[in-house]
Amino acid sequence: MTRIAPTPSGYLHLGNAANFAANALLAARTDGRLLLRIDDLDRARVRPAYLQDVFDVLDWLGIEPTEGPRDVEDFTAHWSQEHRMPLYRAALETLRTRTAPNGPQLFACPCSRKELADGVHFYDCPTAGIALAAPQVAWRIDTRGLPLHAQMPDFAVRKKDGRPSYQLACTVDDYHYRITTCARGEDLRASTAAQAVVSDLLGYPKLEERMDVIHHPLLLHDGGKLSKSQGAGGVRELGVSRKEVFAIAKAWLHLPR
């Protein structure tokens, strides 16, 4: 199964639409199954209009996922990540009790983003022995000694408010839904590596053995990547055609146009 996994934190841009198309093409080349999985853990940034935009863009592209929500109401009632919170809590409990004796370790970290600048912990958290049950601590994975450390040092699996992080939830969701292939942006290579670490710690089969992850190039604007958080325009405002979007996706996947 292939998946489309947008985050409803802004209106989708051309890069998002091309990623949707790439995953639809991957599904067509494999078993034909395509899951729509909307990542809505960051509740503070979710807006009803952004959720609706996901369905509007899929409709405009002519993509019909074989599994997942059909509209905003169906998503809210049955498919929100809030409904899978028990899975995430169980995974966190597994991480708490089953860390590799000679591998990456879980530790508690009260550092703020400012105190964690450049990956250096203000409180020496990886070795400080701070209790995981302490209030207002994030749970992080000690990535020292891993190639990942340079790009994503000591990433979080649980946030200070007790909610699962993106890396934890994405790993659990991909395993839960038996995802076998997906296309992701080049900027998510470090996330893929982090999720491989989480997968190993959870005792899942090796991520690289159960998932074929294709990292595609990013679309650039004024020298930087398109981003919802930077106010990138919605797809319907860009004046591009569905055919042009699929042409971008085919080029990413090295398919004939």
Rank of each mutant, 00 (worst) to 15 (best):
R178V: 07
R163I: 03
E186V: 00
V172N: 04
C170A: 15
P164R: 03
G162H: 11
G185M: 01
S191T: 02
R189F: 12
A193P: 00
D187R: 06
T171H: 08
R163E: 15
R184D: 10
Y177P: 00
D173G: 05
D174V: 12
L188W: 07
V172T: 06
Y177A: 12
P164N: 07
K159L: 14
C170K: 08
D187L: 03
D187M: 04
D174G: 10
I179D: 11
Y166I: 05
P164F: 07
D187T: 01
R178Y: 11
A190S: 10
D187E: 15
S191N: 06
P164H: 08
I179A: 10
T171F: 03
A169N: 07
Q167W: 00
K160N: 15
L168F: 05
A193E: 14
S165T: 10
E186Q: 08
C182A: 13
R184Q: 10
A193W: 02
R163G: 13
R163V: 02
R189K: 10
Q167T: 09
Y166R: 06
E186I: 00
T181N: 12
S191K: 05
P164K: 01
E186S: 07
R163L: 15
R189C: 03
T171M: 11
K160A: 15
R189S: 05
C170V: 15
P164S: 06
G162V: 09
Y166C: 03
V172E: 05
D173W: 11
Y175E: 13
H176C: 04
R184W: 13
R178I: 04
I179E: 12
D174F: 04
D174K: 13
E186M: 02
D161E: 14
A169E: 09
D187I: 00
D161F: 12
R163D: 14
A190Y: 00
L168T: 07
A193F: 01
R178P: 01
I179T: 14
K160M: 15
D161N: 15
P164W: 09
L168S: 04
K159V: 09
D187A: 02
R163F: 15
Y166Q: 07
Y177N: 12
Y175T: 04
T181L: 02
D187C: 01
C170D: 14
L168M: 04
A169D: 08
D161L: 11
Q167L: 11
V172H: 02
C182R: 10
Y175L: 01
T192C: 09
Y166A: 04
T181I: 01
A190D: 11
L168H: 07
H176V: 00
L168C: 01
A193T: 09
R184H: 10
Y166P: 02
D187W: 06
R184K: 13
A169G: 04
C182T: 11
A169F: 09
C170Q: 13
T181D: 15
G162F: 09
T192D: 15
S191D: 10
D161Y: 14
T181G: 12
S165Y: 07
C182D: 05
R189P: 00
I179Y: 09
C170S: 14
P164D: 10
E186Y: 01
R189G: 01
H176N: 09
